[in-house]
């Protein structure tokens, strides 16, 4: 893929607000809820930002990784904390794959002598 011909364009991140096009009311509801989700609450803004960063890696969303790498810095997180957050995501992803090995084992146990 050439630099100018790819699915993910960093400039598209700025168009996030356009997801409300053709569905204005739903878009407004989404962004209102989104804003409330990330506001200081039982969890701090920084904790929420680190969770978002971890989830961004789990769902492998380059826009989200860009947005929440910057956001976590602006919430006072450092690279050690952000790296640990990514490891949490990786551990859950890895663990989720491995725990399915139980299913594999169940099937194989049933099918074999």
């Amino acid at each position: 893929m050439s630099e100018h011909n790819h699915y993910y364009d960093p400039a598209d991140l700025k168009k996030f607000g356009e997801v409300g096009k053709n569905a204005k009311e739903l878009g407004e509801k989404f962004f209102s809820w989104y804003g409330s989700v990330f506001a200081e609450g039982a969890l701090s803004e920084r904790e929420k930002s680190l969770i978002a960063l971890a989830v961004a890696h789990a769902v492998q969303c380059p826009y989200c990784i860009d947005a929440y790498s910057n956001d976590a810095l602006e919430k006072g997180a450092n690279l050690d904390q952000m790296t640990e957050a990514v490891h949490v995501a990786a551990a859950i992803k890895g663990g989720a794959a491995l725990v399915h090995g139980v299913q594999m084992r169940n099937i194989v146990t049933k099918k074999t002598m």
Binding site: S44, E45, R46, N70, L73, E74, K75, G76
Partner: peptide
């Protein structure tokens, strides 16, 4: 900030 980003909220820092 040690870089090209805005400061974190003052009270939490």
């Amino acid at each position: 900030p040690v870089g090209a980003f805005l400061p974190a909220p003052q009270k939490s820092m």
